[in-house]
Design a protein around this nucleic acid. Structure first.
Lengths: 231, 231
DNA sequence: AAAAATAATTGAGACTATTCAATGTTTCAA
DNA sequence: TTGAAACATTGAATAGTCTCAATTATTTTT
């Protein structure tokens, strides 16, 4: 196992994370003492829906996809997580299990922070807690979008939603499409892979998007939004 | 307008709410001074998705349904809220708007609490804040279920999920079905009303449920769960 | 560089779910 | 108590989506 990196420390993360920014030096040191850093290889499962959640996970570096698994072995992709985002926050106070699975889209360095340690910080540092709650709220909003998309739209609208999501600046910086298969895109939209391929071709024919290898460029974002709106 | 009730006070709510239980007398009095109580009639909209959210709402008494509205004027029902639950919590730190709509299923008494007042309590009282966060987490979990249901199951599975949800003890106490139309049930499952009716008839024929007027009784919960699992 | 494995694409047919229209039922107010 | 309105049910036609199988392209391994 060369998976454990040589003692990385949390001071680095203070720079990049809006959450860690709220921590003072002694709090940072506290977290530093109570974490383990692990390197996950592309494709590996980082946490598994239903598994016991003893730690909160922090993406120190990498690209991670989060998804829900159903009994009939289908996946619904929730979102792509980047550097300096948390995984499994809601297991702190809620159920003691991960409510979703995550997998590395590329090699990713993950810090595992003990839940009690994390909870201690939350109670001792109000502005840290506020930042975390803010994160919850934004997240909830995205889940509502997802519900609306899956529950009230048909193929075109759902794929439009997916493309709009994947095309946000934040993900484009990472060349996100180079890490996603057609199946991945389909699992965002809640469609079969074949339907997704057919629709993408159709969108391309209508010059809404352009497809260059894995990369998908949006040529007509307004029309895409219109398709999303129409459902 | 006889909508404003004669100064009800928060001490009553301390008994029934797991949240208010965490507040001390002066905090209760503080909230009491910063709230307005309003009676909503059956069918009235209590808060509207997209509207400016200046208050956190608390269901002092009644029965409320929360739902998402899409552009193409479809509704997706999220959950039924009862006495002593909050509406619009996530507008405290997140967006300044309601992320979903709510409507009274029967006459309901709602307390409107100013957001800043509520926020003050959150920062001053850690265990109150923890209870609220806990609420978030449970809620999130339900949203995941919804996403999985809408995104990975077909009609039978989705309706099974809906019936399972509506049959929890907590809602049965309220004779929930007497307040729900077929359309309401359909909007929980993300189906058309007609498909819902057809499926209910089918479930009845298979003695999975019994239908007596508006009331729906579950005769075979295990089979219902199996249908849910199969998707 | 060839072979093997994986991913993307396409078409046809089967299945799923909705819409529209017609009819029956319940509720509620005048 | 009757009529109007809202709700529930049913059937038929249509539209939407998936599955399966075959083919082509790409990536990975040897």
């Amino acid at each position: 196992m060369d998976n454990f990196s040589e003692s990385a420390n949390c001071y680095e993360c203070k720079k990049s994370s809006k959450y860690f920014r709220e921590l003072n030096p002694s709090e940072l040191e506290f977290i530093n003492q109570n974490k383990t850093q692990i390197l996950y290889r592309k494709g590996e499962t980082i946490c598994k829906q239903g598994a016991f959640a003893s730690h909160v996970l922090y993406i120190s570096d990498g690209l991670v996809s989060s998804y829900l698994e159903s009994f009939n072995n289908r996946h619904i992709n929730l979102k792509i997580l980047k550097k300096s985002e948390f995984i499994g926050l809601s297991s702190i106070y809620g159920d003691n299990i991960y409510n979703y699975s995550t997998a590395a889209l590329k090699d990713s360095t993950i810090c595992m922070i003990k839940k009690d340690s994390f909870r201690k910080l939350l109670t001792s540092n109000g502005s840290f807690a506020s930042e975390i709650i803010k994160g919850y709220c934004e997240n909830e909003n995205q889940l509502f979008n997802k519900i609306l998309s899956l529950g009230s739209k048909q193929m075109h609208g759902r794929l439009a939603d997916t493309l709009i999501y994947l095309h946000n600046q934040y993900l484009q910086e990472e060349k996100i499409f180079s890490y996603l298969s057609r199946k991945d895109i389909a699992e965002f939209a809640g469609l079969s892979t074949e339907s997704t391929v057919r629709l993408l071709t159709e969108f391309k024919k209508d010059t809404i998007i352009d497809i260059i290898g894995k990369e998908i460029k949006v040529l007509n974002p307004d029309l895409l939004k219109e398709i999303s709106r129409r459902g």
